[in-house]
Every structure is written in structure tokens, then in C-alpha cells.
Amino acid sequence: MKRRYLLQASAAMVGAAGLSRYLSGCAKERAVATPPFEVVKTETEWRKILTPAQFYVLRQHGTEQAGTSPLDRQYGKGNYRCVGCDLPLFASNAKFNSGTGWPSFYAPIEKAIGTSEDKMFGMTRTEVHCRRCGGHLGHVFLDGPPPTGQRYCINGVALKFVPA
């Protein structure tokens, strides 16, 4: 009986390790295959100006842990800018508490973001990135408040808040 459980556990660990390698490989492929942007830097240049967490999210399409960003609880007046290139992305008057643990907005500043289709993890989502540097910001969903009905669920580590 114990041998059977040992074999099942071993198979699960091998499967998880394989899936982990596959998903990290997909993220690396996606990070390389980006269209030209106004701000272009090498991986080394990005690593010099970003923290490891910022690099993981912006350049490797990662996600920060929910509830860890102080910007989720920031409700002062101002703008949220891309931490990679300083482009204003979201105004504070479009921010709302979604209860998800990530800063959420119902609309971006006009012409600030780009979107692409994200098919990772067996689902199709709309990825949001900075229009100027291509940095991955998060995703947009159709369960937000009026007037747009959209929820831009954004990694706080990809943003910096500049008070008005």
C-alpha cells in the first residue's frame, strides 16, 4: 500500500516539474516575441533599472501575489505610471476596490496601453501592456463597474503612483 502512494506522489512531482518547465519556457518565448516599442532595452539594461519583482512582471509576464501591493490600498489623487518607462497609464479617478488584491481600474488613460491575447493556463484572457515599453501590466476582464464594465486588474509592482 505504501509503495503505491510513493509511486503516485513521485508521478505527481515529476508532472508538476515538467509543467513548471513548460510554463516558464512559454513565458520566456513570449517575452522575446514582442513587437517594436518606443522604449527598447536589452535584458541586461532592464535588469539594471528594475527590481527582480518588477523584471519578473514587466519583462517575463509574471504576476505578483495578491494583496502584496500597497498601491491596491492607495486612493489619493494622481496618476499611476509605468515603472519601466514612466508613461502615465491610469488616473486615480478610474480606480476602484475590486476586492481581488490587485489595483483595479475601469479605464486606462487614452492611448496608454496595448492589449494582446493571452492563452496561458488553458484559458483565453486579454493581456494589458504599456504602449511605450511593452511591459506586461496585467489583464482586463469584463466584470468591472460602470461606466465601462471593465476591470483592468494590474500588478502593483508594474506601477508607480505620482500624486497630483
Rank of each mutant, 00 (worst) to 15 (best):
R59S: 01
I154T: 03
P88K: 01
P88S: 02
G84H: 11
F96V: 04
F105G: 03
G67P: 10
T68D: 01
G138L: 05
F141I: 09
L142T: 15
G138D: 02
F141M: 00
A66H: 14
T115S: 12
L142R: 15
N97G: 10
P70C: 00
R132D: 08
P145A: 01
A91F: 04
E64A: 11
T100Q: 02
Y80C: 08
E64Q: 07
E110P: 00
G122T: 05
N93M: 13
V83A: 05
I154M: 10
C133H: 03
S98C: 06
R73V: 06
A91W: 02
G144Q: 01
A66Q: 14
V157H: 11
A53S: 14
P108C: 05
E64L: 07
L137W: 13
P146E: 15
T100A: 02
I109N: 10
P70G: 06
C82K: 09
G114M: 01
G156R: 03
A94Q: 14
L58R: 12
D118Y: 05
S92V: 00
K95C: 07
K77S: 07
P103N: 09
Y75F: 13
L87R: 10
L71I: 08
F96L: 04
L142Q: 15
Y106F: 09
K77D: 08
R81Y: 07
G114K: 08
D118M: 00
G122E: 06
D72N: 14
W102C: 07
K119R: 14
C130G: 03
V140A: 12
H61Q: 15
L89R: 08
S116T: 14
K111F: 15
G67T: 08
H136G: 00
F141K: 12
P52N: 02
E110V: 07
F90H: 03
T51I: 11
E64H: 00
R131V: 11
R81Q: 13
L58S: 04
K111T: 13
F121I: 14
L58Q: 10
F121C: 13
G67N: 05
G114C: 09
A94S: 14
V57I: 07
L137E: 08
T126M: 00
T126I: 08
T63P: 10
T148E: 05
F96N: 02
T51L: 13
R132G: 02
Y152G: 07
G134E: 01
N155W: 03
V57G: 08
P70I: 11
M123K: 01
E64V: 04
V83M: 00
G101F: 01
F121M: 14
T115A: 06
E110G: 11
L87D: 12
C85L: 09
Q54P: 08
H139D: 06
V157K: 04
G122W: 00
V83I: 11
T115D: 10
K111N: 14
I109T: 09
T63W: 13
N155Q: 03
V157F: 09
G134S: 00
F121H: 15
H129K: 02
E117C: 03
